Structures are given as structure tokens and as C-alpha cells.
Simulated scan of single mutants.
Amino acid sequence: MGLKGKLTAQVEMKAGGDLFHELFRHKPQQIPHISPTTIQGCDLHEGEWGNVGSVYFWKYTHDGKQQVAKDVIETIDDEKRSITFKVVEGDLMKLYKAFKGSFHVETHGGIDLVTWTLEYEKLNDDVEEPLSLLSFCIKLAKDIEAHHLKAA
């Protein structure tokens, strides 16, 4: 298999895709309160919340292990309700030469769908495809949805 790859998953968002995009765009620091078993912290290291070029530091639990990631917001498109994060430091960089995570929200037949995309370049052929990280993203989306449906 090649060292570069791309994984995609799509999740229906009954709570509304706008809500999902706005949370990541303007209030990511609230995500640990919404999904505490998944994300334990989101701190702003540089820039301003929700701006391209801003640097976030995440504390999260993946596969039962406490992990960290420092990422830069690479792109934001409010019309497409999309954000791309480029990981620049942290546990993922022990396995990947490059790693980006992005999502966008689209509406089909009145149903909002959140599409997660992970793009990566593994350090070597021994590194597994990040399927469990894609599952992590799906769980996070479902936690956000459940939180907002409960609050409504």
C-alpha cells in the first residue's frame, strides 16, 4: 500500500449542520463540555478563535490513550460550512509525516450531512490506516448531535 491516503465518512446531523459548523468555527473550546470522553481540552495558542492561521492545542482520548495535537486552521469556508485543520505537532506526528482533518456540511433533501475527511502521509508502511481516528470523528459528531438534541 502507498504511504499517502484519504479516508471519508458521512454522518447525518439531526441537530443541524449550521450548529455543528458554528461550534467548530467559533466555540471549539466548548467541545470538551459536550464530548468529555472524547475531547478533554481545546486551547487557543495563537491567533483568534475561528480564524484561518489560528493554532489550537487539543487534548483528547483515542483508543483509550490520552493524546495531544497542535493544529493550524488551514481553511474556512462559511458558505460550504467547512473547516480544514492541519496537524503540526503531537502524537499523530509520531506516525504521520502529514495529517489533515476536515469536515464540510451539505444538505440533501432537507437532511444535513457532516462529511469528515482525513488526509495523511504515513511515516512508513508499518503504520496502519487511521480508521480508528475516523471512528473517533464519527463519535464526536454523534456526541455533538446528542448534546444539541437534548438541549433543544
Rank of each mutant, 00 (worst) to 15 (best):
G90R: 00
K80Q: 14
A15V: 03
L95R: 02
R81Y: 06
D143M: 04
E48Y: 09
I83F: 07
E22Q: 13
Q66R: 03
K4Q: 15
D71L: 10
G110L: 10
C137H: 12
G17C: 04
L133S: 14
I111F: 09
T117R: 00
V55I: 15
G47N: 02
G110P: 10
G5V: 05
K142Y: 09
H45Q: 14
E129G: 06
L3V: 07
K122N: 13
D78G: 05
F136V: 01
V72P: 02
A146H: 10
K142Q: 14
D126A: 13
L92P: 05
S35D: 03
K59I: 11
V52L: 05
S35P: 04
D143A: 11
V127F: 10
K27L: 06
F24N: 01
E89Y: 05
A146F: 03
S82M: 09
G2R: 07
V68D: 10
K70G: 09
H45G: 06
T37W: 07
L95A: 06
S135L: 14
H33T: 12
L23E: 01
D71P: 08
E119H: 04
A15F: 06
K70H: 09
K97W: 03
L95Q: 09
R25W: 05
H148E: 09
I39T: 01
Q29D: 13
K150W: 07
E74S: 08
L134G: 02
A146Y: 05
L92D: 04
I83A: 02
R25N: 12
K97C: 06
Y120R: 00
A9H: 08
K139R: 12
K4Y: 02
M1A: 11
G17F: 06
Q10E: 13
F85V: 02
E121Y: 11
V88G: 06
V72M: 13
V127R: 01
E106T: 14
F24A: 00
V127L: 04
P28Y: 11
D78W: 04
R81H: 09
W58K: 00
D78V: 13
F20K: 01
I39Y: 01
L118V: 13
L134Q: 04
G2C: 03
H33C: 07
Y120D: 09
L149A: 04
M93D: 01
K65L: 10
E119T: 15
K4P: 03
P32R: 00
F85W: 14
I83M: 15
K27W: 07
G47R: 00
A9E: 14
E128D: 15
